[in-house]
Simulated scan of single mutants.
Amino acid sequence: METYTAMRQFADSWALLGMVIFFLGVVAFIFRPGAKQAAERAAAIPLKED
């Protein structure tokens, strides 16, 4: 089997599944309880005085 064909089959199956799982993990991380306060604290870091 050619390298391109093998990589193409992998990308069409397992890599796509991995990207979907990663995307769902990022969405779950963003919408978890307490994420808003953490994002607001991170956004205020450049504005803090020394």
Rank of each mutant, 00 (worst) to 15 (best):
A42Y: 04
A38P: 00
A44F: 04
G18T: 04
G25W: 04
F10N: 02
R8D: 10
E49D: 07
W14V: 10
L47C: 03
A15V: 11
M7I: 06
L47Y: 15
D50F: 07
V26Q: 10
S13F: 00
A44M: 11
K48D: 07
F29L: 14
L47S: 11
K48G: 06
Q37P: 00
V20S: 10
M1T: 10
L47M: 11
R41K: 15
Q9H: 07
A28V: 08
L24T: 07
G25V: 03
V27H: 02
T5N: 05
F29H: 09
R41V: 02
A44V: 01
T5M: 05
L24K: 08
F10I: 09
M19P: 00
W14H: 07
A42K: 09
F10C: 02
I45D: 02
F23Q: 04
Y4E: 12
L16H: 04
A38I: 06
V27R: 13
A38R: 14
L17H: 07
E49A: 05
M7R: 13
G18E: 04
I45V: 15
V20D: 02
G25C: 14
A44E: 14
A28E: 06
M19I: 07
A42D: 06
A35C: 04
A39P: 01
Y4I: 09
A35H: 08
L47V: 01
L17S: 11
L24Q: 11
A38Q: 14
W14Q: 12
F10P: 00
R8T: 11
I30H: 03
M19E: 06
A38C: 01
V20T: 14
R8Y: 07
K36F: 08
R32P: 01
V26H: 01
I21R: 06
P33D: 14
R8N: 09
D50M: 08
E2T: 15
A38M: 10
K36S: 09
E2R: 06
D12Y: 04
A38K: 13
I21S: 08
F29C: 03
